[in-house]
Amino acid sequence: MSSHLDGNALAGALSDVFQGDVTAASARCAGCGAVSVLAEAMVYPDAPGLVVRCASCDHVLATIVEAGDRVFLSLSGMSTIELRRRP
């Protein structure tokens, strides 16, 4: 029988993932499949949120919407993100 935990089990793993500078991370574009370092993506700041687009195909990789005491983060345009562990 398979078992699962609730989302609280993510706390350790995700806080590990989201620490530090993620611009050095690589991501695979869900639109064209290109893998590139996030720092090389195109960021459009003059919008109702930050819009991050693939440098190869313009596909939207991510959006960040600042909403007062909330932040909406969408990473739906990236199929995978590769983060390097700190040495």
Partner: peptide, 18 residues
């Protein structure tokens, strides 16, 4: 924008921003 945090309808008089 509605997928990414903004309101489905967006009435400015009700401040339906997010």
């Amino acid at each position: 924008w509605e997928q990414n945090g903004y309101h489905f309808y967006g009435d400015p008089w009700k401040e339906e921003r997010y």
